[in-house]
């Protein structure tokens, strides 16, 4: 039970921590928005869990997979909005970005945090597992917090060196990884056909190892990705990067012309 709880934290809590620290490093410091969106996300997770039996029956029993995949897609689209916000300098856009970031964290809390609530709800009533459950929670939280601090420092350093586009790129890589991770949800409910395995690096870094878990969270690493996952990953990463690079160049040349 102790190890299970720690692994559950690595798989489901770490993505929340990573997104929070990336966004915290990316946006100008304000603790209040973070507090509000964490509370909103926790409340949304509880509401989702409360209705999960009903959601699960939607679309011929595929409601959970579809809702989780749609939330990942929405988080990805919000990341693009966040990138667009960097090309704007108006103050109103800066406030709008806090809302976007808050929504991203809330949706991540719903999709990842709901797994926790299910796990704890199922086992918290059993007195014999309470001690390892709490110990596992403290260990898991400790690991997640340590990694979060390291990632925050790395993100801050990147922002100081290369500007806010560096932290936005980190967020984009993370979100693209999560989007690609959600693709098998559509395959498992038979909405899209499975494609062949592109390669297997199982012997190098297995999905089951700690590094496999960590790389999976940071950039969507999979030891044996399908061709569809690789295609989606490359397109979802390169197209926005190319578009925003072009927008940045254009705005730079326009401001140069004005002067």
């Amino acid at each position: 039970m102790l190890i299970n709880t720690v692994i559950l934290f690595l798989r489901d809590a770490l993505p929340i921590f990573v997104l929070v620290v990336y966004l915290y490093a990316h946006l100008p410091a304000s603790k209040l928005w973070l507090f509000f969106c964490l509370v909103a996300g926790a409340l949304l997770s509880l509401a989702y869990i409360n209705q999960i039996h009903i959601i699960g029956q939607w679309f011929d029993g595929n409601g959970i997979e579809l809702s989780l995949w749609l939330s990942q897609l929405l988080i990805y689209l919000l990341t693009l909005v966040l990138g667009y916000g960097l090309t704007r300098v108006q103050t109103s856009y800066q406030y709008f970005m806090f809302w976007v970031a808050g929504l991203m964290i809330s949706l991540t809390l719903v999709s990842k945090g709901s797994n926790f609530i299910l796990y704890f709800d199922g086992y918290l009533n059993q007195s014999n597992v309470l001690q390892p459950l709490l110990l596992g929670t403290f260990l898991g939280l400790g690991i997640c917090l340590s990694l979060a601090v390291l990632l925050y420092l790395a993100a801050q350093w990147l922002k100081q060196q290369f500007g806010p586009w560096a932290t936005w790129s980190l967020i984009l890589v993370y979100v693209t990884g999560q989007l690609v991770n959600a693709l098998p949800l559509l395959v498992q409910v038979d909405l899209i056909d499975p494609s062949a395995i592109a390669w297997s690096s199982q012997h190098l870094v297995s999905d089951e190892f700690e590094f496999g878990h960590l790389f999976n969270v940071l950039f969507g690493y999979q030891a044996a990705p399908s061709n569809a996952q690789v295609t989606v990953y490359v397109l979802a990463l390169l197209i926005p990067l190319a578009i925003f690079y072009w927008l940045k160049q254009r705005s730079a040349s326009q401001s140069g012309n004005k002067q």
Partner: peptide, 16 residues
């Protein structure tokens, strides 16, 4: 509840 999980099959699903 239980979560059916498989790394090699690339599947995970919560079963209430």
């Amino acid at each position: 509840p239980e979560e059916f999980d498989s790394f090699s099959l690339n599947r995970e699903k919560v079963i209430f």
